[in-house]
Design a protein around this nucleic acid. Sequence first.
DNA 1: CTGGATCCATTGGGATACTG
DNA 2: CAGTATCCCAATGGATCCAG
Lengths: 127, 127
Amino acid sequence: MTTSTAEDEWREDCAPRRVLDLFATKWTSMILHTLDARHDGAARTGVLQRSLPGISKKMLTQTLRDMEASGFVSRHARGTIPPAVEYRLTPLGQRFVEPVELLYGWGRDNADALDQMGARPTARRRG
Amino acid sequence: MTTSTAEDEWREDCAPRRVLDLFATKWTSMILHTLDARHDGAARTGVLQRSLPGISKKMLTQTLRDMEASGFVSRHARGTIPPAVEYRLTPLGQRFVEPVELLYGWGRDNADALDQMGARPTARRRG
DNA sequence: CTGGATCCATTGGGATACTG
DNA sequence: CAGTATCCCAATGGATCCAG
């Protein structure tokens, strides 16, 4: 059985942890989902911001830039005035949406269990 | 198609976002995975710490406590000296491991794509 | 061996004002 | 409308020392 406790796969740079890093910036997956929810997998900045109550303009732009650099979305600017910028899921982004949606689906299916714990991070006690 | 852009499901307290919160404390899913990787879904503190290179004793205990409060693991202490504490996946924990493993699996399947982006959060530029 | 308590550096991320 | 630049706070989480 090779003692396959998977002791070897948890270095900082292993693939699974790289995926976790994608959730470190909390808006990443939600942006992907929002884009995915649109028929053409694309949306303009304003639409995204309105679809994600609570996100600040700063975090929206910043997250989008990071996602672009990571290859999850592509940016399409129309050189018009006023500006009209559209973000679109890349093939990689589309692939990643699948496990993300699965995760969200799990949440809906287990909403009651999630409700029983507070609204904190994991159950973070404050102070 | 009801224009199901899902504009309504993104309040702070919606189920999907509750799930995301589970990843806010970065060790949660890794602890779950480590427990799941063991034949009996249980492990002692020392084993967990050794299986998760980089985790500090503080974060290990703290995360475990939060996970216990959230109902993902159960704590079993033997009143011996020295202490022997064992953590075990609860049914809820076992259920949650599934989507988590799927996510990790995605990472392995797309390791090359993940490699192309830096090792930063999403692609965080420092400074 | 397990875990609690501090101290503290880092940084995610919000508010706001400004530029094209 | 889209994006940048500061300012600033809260909280993650590492290092240590202490206690059953």
